[in-house]
Computed example of a mutant assay.
Amino acid sequence: MSRRARERTPQGPSAVGRRFTVTCGSWAHGGHVVARIDAGEPDVGGTVVFVRHALPGEEVTVAITEGVVGDRFLRGDAVELHTRSTDRVEAPCPVAGPGLCGGCDLQHVRLEAQREAKAGIVLEQLRRLAGIDTDLVVEPVRPDEDGLRWRTRVGFHRARDGRLGMLAHRSHRVVPVEDCLVRAPDAVVSVRGEWEPPKTVIEQVGTYAFAADGAGFWQAHRDAPGVFVRTVLEMAEVRPGDHVVDLFSGVGLFSAPLADAVGETGAVLAVEGDEVAASLASSNLATWPWARVSPGAVADVLAIEVDHGSSYDVVVLDPPRVGAKRKVLEQVVALGPRTVVHVACDPASFARDAAILAEHGYALAELRAFDAYPMTHHVEVIAKFVDVPVEMP
């Protein structure tokens, strides 16, 4: 039996390349500001457009880069500046800007203003998706920084003329890049399709040394692992003898210091779905026999733990960008922890996760955010949830 074809909404003519003068509104999640095309414009009047390389309050000419007539919204680049925000600066990188490298989308924004924008996005998502009102300051990972030379993993592409470069935004077009200004001097570098990173690299975080996959996940900012470990330990407040589960544990960045904190009378369960990372985590945690690694999908492993009536005092989770989602979070709640520490790299998915935890009686007790990706719209959030209601300061 053939599957019925999905009905598609008829598309109008492309709007790509059309230009409009707009006044930019507030920041939106994703590194752009929101504007609306004048109502008098033919076909697209009144349509929302998400504008890159602009700032709130600026009047710009936006060139549409994506969308067709009839879409709910369009995407575009600010290609001409008519009024200038006081938060605008000259981008330090010569290939940052409309139609150029898609890696850094906020190089035109004063560093302090970048952090203010990120704090606003996190708070807006929490209000809209979780009904949570609080205050937040996005903290620098490295003090007195200029927002450059922080990235520990850099992947290049080969342009048609043989030069190395980066992809343009939402494109497969390679923009030649002579020097990536956010690349750390000791970054692990790869070139897609020809120069692969080393299989295993050693990452030093304080007194801990972690074997990590050169092509796998590791925190992008060179100073982020140490800051995140300290913050997670402070929020978790684990005690000697505690039983802790570390979900989406990677190679054990949080599991090792958690194992130290609970001591040999406690226990740490690290759960990781990536086979390579789980294998490396087993090696990295060999010093602590009371820490064990359970490879496999987090939901599958937790199903076994919950079915056996297991309980844990603290749960730490560092899910991918899509968040932990309902099934995993309800399994976490079933374990009965007194504290859940959530590490998140996407404000929207974090807010959805926070709403689910709130449904089950876990209140947001502490919230911090870090500028772990300067010059980009990305931000890292670390939050503490407890099983008794508390009032945020």
Results as ranks from 00 to 15, higher is better:
residue 23 T to K: 14
residue 35 A to Y: 10
residue 22 V to I: 01
residue 23 T to F: 09
residue 13 P to A: 15
residue 12 G to M: 05
residue 23 T to L: 14
residue 35 A to V: 00
residue 10 P to Q: 04
residue 13 P to N: 15
residue 44 V to H: 04
residue 16 V to Q: 13
residue 26 S to N: 13
residue 42 P to Q: 03
residue 13 P to W: 14
residue 18 R to T: 02
residue 12 G to W: 03
residue 28 A to I: 06
residue 36 R to F: 13
residue 9 T to F: 06
residue 26 S to A: 14
residue 10 P to C: 03
residue 27 W to A: 04
residue 12 G to L: 00
residue 39 A to G: 15
residue 13 P to I: 05
residue 23 T to N: 08
residue 18 R to N: 05
residue 18 R to I: 02
residue 24 C to V: 04
residue 21 T to S: 09
residue 10 P to N: 02
residue 15 A to Y: 09
residue 30 G to W: 03
residue 28 A to V: 12
residue 28 A to H: 11
residue 24 C to A: 07
residue 39 A to M: 11
residue 40 G to V: 02
residue 30 G to M: 03
residue 32 H to V: 05
residue 21 T to D: 14
residue 19 R to Q: 04
residue 40 G to N: 09
residue 20 F to E: 02
residue 21 T to W: 12
residue 23 T to A: 13
residue 25 G to F: 09
residue 44 V to E: 02
residue 29 H to S: 13
residue 27 W to S: 00
residue 10 P to E: 02
residue 39 A to I: 07
residue 45 G to N: 04
residue 36 R to T: 09
residue 9 T to S: 12
residue 37 I to E: 01
residue 24 C to P: 08
residue 28 A to L: 11
residue 20 F to G: 03
residue 16 V to P: 12
residue 31 G to K: 01
residue 21 T to Q: 14
residue 41 E to H: 08
residue 44 V to P: 06
residue 10 P to T: 00
residue 34 V to Q: 12
residue 34 V to M: 11
residue 16 V to C: 10
residue 39 A to W: 09
residue 38 D to N: 14
residue 20 F to I: 00
residue 24 C to N: 09
residue 40 G to T: 05
residue 36 R to W: 11
residue 33 V to T: 01
residue 24 C to K: 06
residue 10 P to D: 02
residue 42 P to Y: 03
residue 28 A to S: 12
residue 34 V to H: 07
residue 34 V to A: 08
residue 10 P to K: 01
residue 36 R to C: 10
residue 29 H to P: 00
residue 40 G to L: 10
residue 29 H to Y: 13
residue 41 E to T: 03
residue 34 V to W: 12
residue 32 H to A: 14
residue 22 V to A: 03
residue 23 T to G: 08
residue 44 V to A: 05
residue 27 W to H: 10
residue 23 T to R: 15
residue 43 D to V: 05
residue 25 G to M: 09
residue 23 T to I: 08
residue 27 W to K: 00
residue 45 G to E: 01
residue 25 G to N: 11
residue 30 G to P: 03
residue 42 P to V: 04
residue 12 G to V: 01
residue 32 H to P: 11
residue 41 E to L: 10
residue 17 G to L: 04
residue 20 F to S: 04
residue 9 T to N: 11
residue 22 V to D: 03
residue 16 V to I: 06
residue 44 V to S: 06
residue 9 T to W: 06
residue 42 P to D: 00
residue 30 G to F: 05
residue 16 V to S: 07
residue 15 A to S: 15
residue 28 A to E: 07
residue 10 P to Y: 07
residue 39 A to H: 13
